[in-house]
Design a protein around this nucleic acid. Structure first.
Lengths: 142, 142
DNA sequence: CGGAAATTTGGAATTATTCTAATTCGTAAT
DNA sequence: ATTACGAATTAGAATAATTCCAAATTTCCG
């Protein structure tokens, strides 16, 4: 996994020509930069609006295309909460999402030290987990 | 919580006039009976098609209305997997959902004895969880 | 440079769900 | 029973997110 998750003030130009086998086009750079910049779990449309600022000609369809490419190449993660629009998250480490009912903000939540999901679920022998999503809603403390 | 989860061969007529404070109309009975009968996590449209068999005049809008009423009164649970249509589940006990990639079937998965989600997540003090959803995908063993 | 392949684009199409306004139903009082 | 009223149902239109499509553009490579 490439460590983009912590690079904060990355400009689109700073990305290498290829990430995780995905050719970085101008639009993909822009979309990725948007997601890395604010880290607030934007929807595709949010990304579109932000990307448009620097690249007024980008289209929504392209944003969807870029997001799909980034997701399938494991460069960003797609987050689905209830029936809302998908959101996009640059944090690739194991974590889940908590949506605060007051602010609407989405927080990343990590597992306690050493906890593995397979340890806590009653899964039949031979089960292979390829995808896992945990989402919570409520009042986020602090 | 009313123990409908285990009643299997329930006919619509068998329901009391009111469940969890929700008046049971003819359509709501039918929708609930469908969900209790097959327990295969049908979508709204699946429910519609099945309900139509016994009640040819029921409309899709009504199925959506009934499902919403049943969900908000905690009589059935709404299950969201990725971006697919919502599905509906009569099992109200704590559990999560595993979608088998081969068959497409959805399996209920329970926590191991004594595990509480709050114990395994790093949540800030004062956090109140009102809603929780865990979904998995992969090859389901056995 | 020249052609093939990949990407982008705008708009149309699709799909699940919600909305709306009119009708019907159910209940309870007369 | 009849009436009246609020709740529920209905069909169809509307909406919203996403995907599809076909044409235009860009990129890559020899």
């Amino acid at each position: 996994m490439i460590s983009l998750a912590n690079k904060k003030n990355l400009k689109p130009e700073d990305f290498p020509p290829e990430i995780e086998g995905l050719r970085m086009t101008r639009q993909r750079r822009e979309v990725l930069a948007v997601i890395l910049r604010d880290r607030d779990h934007p929807t595709a449309n949010d990304v579109f609006l932000r990307a448009q600022k620097r690249m007024p000609t980008i289209s929504l369809a392209t944003v969807y295309n870029c997001l799909e490419a980034l997701v399938t190449h494991n460069i960003v993660r797609q987050v689905n909460l209830e029936r809302e629009s998908s959101r996009y998250c640059p944090n690739l480490s194991d974590h889940c999402h908590f949506q605060d009912e007051k602010s609407g903000k989405i927080h990343d939540v990590v597992f306690k030290e050493g906890v593995k999901l397979e340890d806590i679920l009653e899964l039949p022998k031979g089960t292979e987990v390829s995808h896992l999503e945990i989402s919570l809603k409520g009042i986020f403390g602090k």
